[in-house]
Design a protein around this nucleic acid. Structure first.
Length: 580
RNA sequence: GCACCCGUAGCUCAGCAGGAUAGAGCAGGGCUUUCCUAAAGCUCAGGUCGCAGGUUCGAAUCCUGCCGGGUGCACCA
């Protein structure tokens, strides 16, 4: 099922060739949804651009193309302004489009013909510390991207590149061994957090401790039994905690997706050797480093990327290089996506270039850093608690659910506690995620409870409410959605036309999110759908429609909206509820 | 110092592979409920799209230079 815009593009292309000749077969018809309903449904903007090439006036070209349109999909096509071609679709075509979307469980979004293998590296917290607000964005943006690409039919490989191997473990291990720590079953991540803070403090104040901690890392990485035993306990507890947070967030990451730094330990040497053999390694103050064109340090000297430190240990670039090699060579990635804070932009640019220079990433492989900005407090500084501490992710989720429960209780006091709390979990978590995803990811955004839980505007509660309203209609009317799925959609009101046009744009939106890796585009779209539905709802009675055919048509249209919202929110990792 | 990102209405944000009078929510003024949840809808007011050049038939959108704000430039990830 081709989407409307594709159909129009093909119609316009044919007309352009008919009007101007075969030489114009490659001209992009520049079809876009009309900016204003007064202009029609779609517009084609190619005439102005072709004027110079064809040596004719733009309006003349537009008129020639329109004369050759003569297609029964269009009820109207005319030329306006400097040469815009305004197109109005036949009602029958729109009805047909609605009917075929109703029949299609993918709502008109075709699976890609040639699926790619896409590796997505996201969440990737450092272990041994409790998850905090800084982990939110990577986790949910990455998850949304994985869902969207997965829905397209791409082969998705999630990689949670947890930091389980770095210096923080040296500190923690040394401290625990020092204090004769005994593991017990009821220890939690909170205890680990406290222990880590103690260890950090000692590092700052005790040079000997710091030295021993560094040695402990070496011991761990070379397989020392005592270190390994304690390390496994720490990792186990950290992963358990991480999974709890993922579970609450509704993130699709499991232990099967774990790709810890430690996993690459045995591969580091060979990766570094490979670079050496290609002559890419150079000495830098005793360390082995790669120098990448275009990167300079503060003094303007070439910037080294140390893959092997002077003490023989491997730097984090070595791990990243080993990982990208593994992902391309063994996982056969066509596309590797890193969802990481935009502050690491230079680092990614650097090692992507190394991967290309080393010949690991050929022309067919896309390496992409999906950067994102910082979550700010109302003071426009990085979001902290009132006392200036890092905000724990668990606390944020608790508060979100609590606040959502209050909002729901205020609006719908009849709900019993259990039901209200279940709704609050979906709405509260959804609100946090949506507030994040609906912003252009590259920008910083201000974390604001009131705004994210507001019932109006571009928020999760507004979208979920639109869904709830539709479910309520079906409930009150005692209508089984399956019974209207085959109904023919008739157009009686402009809002119905606007809705169908909007709904039919879903495939384009998905495509644009998949390409730009910007989930906020989907948010904007869903908000427009919900907003149009409320307008439709205001002017068009559904259950009390004038006749049975209109009623069924409107029920069918409502059902299509509900499915679009549910699917779209689902692709963002946000759930819906049946009532609220 | 060098590099990158951001700068759109009072506030929070869309729009930026160029297209018609720049959109939304909040806040402010006014209105709509015999009708499925008024958690809605309609409407008025509000903008030198940071500034200045350039490219173009056409620039918030592309290019250059400034001015603000932020970030990065480790043998830490």
């Amino acid at each position: 099922m081709a989407d409307l815009q594709s159909k129009l593009e093909s119609i316009l292309r044919d007309a352009t060739v008919a009007a101007l000749g075969d030489a114009y077969a490659d001209a992009d018809p520049l079809v876009t949804p009309a900016k204003d309903a007064r202009f029609g449904d779609y517009q084609a903007n190619l005439a102005m651009g072709l004027a110079k090439r064809a040596g004719r006036k733009p309006r003349e070209i537009a008129e020639a193309i329109v004369r050759h349109l003569g297609h029964d999909a269009l009820s109207k096509a005319d030329v306006a302004g400097p040469g815009f071609i305004n197109l109005t679709l036949n009602d029958a075509l729109l009805s047909g489009q609605a009917a075929s979307m109703l029949r299609d469980d993918r709502l008109g979004v075709e699976a890609v013909a040639d699926p790619q293998t896409v590796v997505i590296d996201y969440a990737s917290p450092n272990l041994a510390k409790e998850m905090h607000i800084g982990h939110l964005r990577s986790t949910i943006i990455g998850d949304a991207i994985a869902r969207v690409l997965g829905f397209q039919g791409q082969h998705i490989i999630r990689q949670n590149h947890i930091g389980d191997w770095g210096t923080q473990f040296g500190l923690l291990l040394e401290h625990l061994i020092d204090t004769d720590w005994q593991h017990s079953a009821d220890q939690t991540i909170g205890d680990l957090n406290a222990l880590y803070q103690e260890a950090s403090r000692r590092e700052d104040n005790d040079a000997d401790f710091a030295r021993r901690a560094r040695q402990r890392v070496v011991a761990l990485q070379s397989g020392d039994e005592q270190a390994r035993t304690i390390w496994k306990l720490l990792i186990g507890e950290s992963v358990r905690h991480m999974n709890q947070v993922f579970d609450r967030l509704g993130v699709q990451l499991t232990d099967a997706d774990l790709a810890p730094e430690s996993f690459y330990n045995d591969r580091l040497a060979s990766v570094v050797d490979a670079l050496d053999q290609q002559g890419l390694l150079h000495d830098h103050k005793g360390a082995k480093a790669v120098f990448v064109d275009g990167f300079k340090d503060r003094d303007g000297n070439p910037l080294p990327m140390a893959v092997r430190k002077a003490d023989g240990g491997f730097g984090y670039p070595a791990t990243d290089l080993a990982a990208v090699y593994y992902r391309i060579d063994e996982l056969h990635a066509d596309r590797v996506i890193y969802v990481v804070d935009s502050r690491q932009k230079d680092h990614f640019a650097q090692f992507f270039q190394v991967a290309r220079q080393a010949g690991w990433a050929g022309d067919g492989v896309r390496l992409e850093h999906v950067g994102f900005g910082t979550i700010m407090g109302k003071d426009r500084k990085p979001f902290k608690t009132r006392t200036g501490e890092i905000v724990k992710l668990g606390d944020v989720l608790d508060e979100a659910v609590e606040r959502a429960a209050q909002v729901v209780a205020a609006k719908n006091p009849e709900l019993d506690n259990a039901r209200r709390d279940a709704i609050a979990r979906v709405v509260g978590i959804g609100a946090v995620k949506y507030a994040d995803l609906s912003n252009d990811r590259i920008k910083d955004y201000v974390f604001d409870w009131d705004r994210m839980l507001a019932l109006e505007g571009n928020t999760a509660p507004y979208l979920i409410y639109a869904y709830v309203r539709i479910r309520s209609i079906f409930r009150k009317g005692g209508v089984d959605p399956a019974s209207v799925a085959g109904a023919s959609v008739v157009l009686t009101d402009p809002t119905e036309r606007a809705l169908i046009l909007k709904l039919s744009q879903l495939p384009r939106v998905i495509e644009s999110v998949a390409d730009s890796l910007e989930p906020h585009r989907l948010c904007t779209y869903l908000y427009e759908v919900a907003s149009l539905y409320h307008q439709f709802n205001h002017t068009c009675p559904v259950l009390k429609a004038e006749d049975a055919a209109t009623r069924d048509s409107r029920l069918a249209l409502s059902w299509l909206v509900a499915r679009t919202l549910k699917l779209g929110l689902g692709l963002l990792g946000i759930g819906v509820v049946e009532q609220m």
